[in-house]
Simulated scan of single mutants.
Amino acid sequence: MLDSILLTGATGFVGQAVVRRLVSDGCLLTAVLRHNSSAIDKRVITSQIESLDGDTCWEDSLSGINVVIHCAARVHVMGEEVADPIAAFRKVNVEGTFNLARQAAKAGVRRFIYISSIKVNGESTSPGTLFTAFDIPAPVDPYGVSKMEAERELQALAMQTDMELVIIRPVLVYGPGVKANFLNMLSWLEKGIPLPLGAINNRRSLVALENLVDLISTCISHPAAANQVFLVSDGDDVSTTQLLQHASKFLSKPSLLVPVPSALLSAICYVFGRRSFAQRLCGSLQVDISHTRDLLGWKPPVSLQTALHETVKYYLESKK
């Protein structure tokens, strides 16, 4: 018997890919939307809500559902403008998430899959050290704190009810249609702008959109996924310099990377108040996915090289 699945965040970068995968798999899918969208596959049932917070009524949306995949969130943004960021994040990511989960448990939902963030673990790893699913959480920014608090609320609820909980903490997700800093990087490289990023020897874990979606699909019914936390990556870490070199190759552009020492780059960023940017650019963040591999018998279906090539290909075709 096919699972009847409710998906939040269906129009987002990850959510759209989840829709494509589940429709392809023949799942009975209901997508929750705040606004009507012509982008949603016609084979998907849609359900509309006005907001995602502690007061949202999910009764109609949850009718007949046995699995919830919760992708929707107030996401981390650069240049936060609200007066109280942590309160804004908590309203959606903590109160909104717990409200949905509480009503899901009451409605008899069998499994709740929560797409969290590696920011729950922290912002960086020291050389030779990898984040694991069993680390004591150490979030730094309001977004990471809100994700950690949501996880704790969900874990407490799972202990009190029969609803199973699966928590997935992705690292930076990339793939066809990616935006933000990853898209900016491709644009800079395509334009042939010389970048002072040719001597960064950090290590970064990334996860291709296809790999993340495959893990989410696996967790829908895998019995061993119940009440577990999973980290996910491509399993092939790269430095910032290597990532740019690979992308340049797929763009068929020369790699104009000037070998400026990363310590100097970090110092310049600190002077201009861009400490977090320096950390993402020059610092390391690696995850250990052995728990995910071993418990689920799962492995990333696509390599970093293949996924990056597809990302660049989509980027170039979208500009035509």
Results as ranks from 00 to 15, higher is better:
Asn36Ser: 07
Asn36Trp: 00
Asn36Met: 01
Asn36Glu: 04
Ser37Cys: 06
Ser37His: 02
Ser38Ile: 00
Ala39Met: 00
Ala39Ser: 00
Ile40Ala: 07
Ile40Phe: 08
Ile40Arg: 09
Ile40Asp: 02
Val44Thr: 11
Ile45Asn: 07
Ile45Cys: 05
Thr46His: 09
Thr46Ile: 15
Thr46Lys: 11
Ser47Glu: 05
Gln48Met: 15
Glu50Met: 07
Glu50Asn: 08
Asp53Leu: 10
Asp53His: 05
Asp55Lys: 12
Asp55Gln: 15
Thr56Met: 11
Thr56Tyr: 05
Thr56Leu: 11
Cys57Ser: 12
Glu59Val: 14
Ser63Ala: 12
Ser63Met: 13
Gly64Trp: 02
Gly64Tyr: 00
Ile65Asn: 01
Asn66Met: 10
Asn66Leu: 07
Asn66Arg: 10
Val67His: 00
Val68Cys: 14
Val68Gln: 04
Ile69Glu: 01
Cys71Glu: 05
Ala72His: 07
Ala73Val: 04
Ala73Asn: 02
Ala73Ser: 12
Arg74Cys: 11
Val77Met: 13
Val77Leu: 14
Val77Glu: 11
Val77Asp: 05
Gly79Pro: 09
Glu80Asn: 13
Pro85Lys: 10
Pro85His: 11
Ile86Gly: 04
Ala87Lys: 14
Ala87Ser: 15
Ala88Tyr: 01
Ala88Lys: 09
Ala88Phe: 03
